[in-house]
Computed example of a mutant assay.
Amino acid sequence: MTGPKPWLIDEAGEDVRRHAPATLRNRDAITALLRQVLPESGTVLEIASGSGEHVVHFAQAFPQLGWQPSDCEPAALRSIAAWAAEAGVANIHPPVLIDVEQPDWPVGDMDAILCINMLHISPWSATLALFRHSAGLLGPDAPLYIYGPFIRHDVMTAESNLAFDASLKARNPAWGLRDVTEVDAIAAENGLVRSDLIEMPANNLSLVYRRA
C-alpha cells in the first residue's frame, strides 16, 4: 500500500486557483475540532495556507474571527487571494508572504495559529522556527494548532503512513513524518506544552499547544 502523493503548489495547472485534494477530505473534521480549540473572537494566523481552500472554509465556518492566511510561495498567495475573492468572504485578510525560517514575520500578536500539513513536507528547521515564532506571537491561552501525519512510539504506525514517510524521504531527505515526542520537546524549549492530541481520520493527528 502506498501513501498519498505530497501536493506541492508548483505542480498545479494554469488556473490561478490551486486545488489540494486533501482539503476536501479533511476540512470538515478539522472544522469540527476547531470549534473546541479556537477563541470566540480575535485573529487567526494560518501558516502554509497552500491553495487557500482551507482558510476560505474556516472563515465561512467562523465568521466571528479574522483570518490571516500566509505562504512562502507567490503562486500560493495568488491562489489564496483568488479563492477568497470568489467566495466573497469578508473576514479573510489579504495573504502575506511568510517563510517560517525567516527571522521576522510580517504580522503582530495573534489569538491562534494554525499549521496544517506542513511539518512533514518541510525541513526540521521549519518546525523549530514555527514554534519559536509562535511562542512570541501567542498570548497565555492562545492555541497553536497543528494537523498532519505523525509517528508515535507508543502506537503502531499505519502501513500507509510508513509508505508515505518513505516516499517523502525519497523525494527529499529533509522531509518525513515527525515524531510527536520530538515535537513536544521543541514546544517545551519554547515555553509551550501540548494540551491535546486528537486522532483524526485517515491516520492523521491534531496537536494543540499552549503556553506552559
Rank of each mutant, 00 (worst) to 15 (best):
T157F: 11
I113R: 04
M110R: 10
N26T: 03
P201I: 13
L77G: 07
E199Y: 05
C115Y: 02
L77N: 05
P74S: 10
H54L: 13
A82R: 11
H133F: 08
H54C: 12
L130T: 03
F131S: 02
A59W: 00
W105D: 08
A87G: 01
M200R: 05
A84C: 00
G13Q: 15
E101Q: 14
M156T: 15
I198A: 10
D196N: 11
M156F: 14
G3P: 05
L65W: 02
L162C: 14
H19S: 12
I113C: 09
W67P: 00
M118Y: 12
A135R: 05
Y147V: 01
A126R: 11
I47P: 09
A84Y: 00
I47R: 05
D154G: 14
A20M: 05
H57W: 05
W175T: 14
L65T: 01
A90P: 00
S167G: 02
T31G: 05
A84M: 00
F150Q: 04
H54T: 09
A81N: 02
V107D: 07
Q36P: 01
W67A: 01
R78I: 00
D165M: 09
T31P: 00
M110Y: 04
L34G: 07
D28I: 07
E14A: 12
R27A: 06
A185K: 13
G50F: 06
L65G: 03
H133K: 07
S134A: 15
V100K: 05
I186V: 15
E40A: 15
K5G: 01
A129D: 15
F58W: 12
G176F: 08
P149V: 15
I98P: 12
R35V: 03
F150S: 08
L77Y: 00
P201T: 14
H120S: 03
D28M: 10
P106Q: 04
K169N: 08
L137M: 13
I198K: 03
E40W: 02
N26L: 07
E73I: 08
W175Q: 11
I9P: 00
P94F: 04
H54A: 14
N203A: 15
R18Y: 01
G136C: 14
E11D: 15
Q64H: 11
N91M: 01
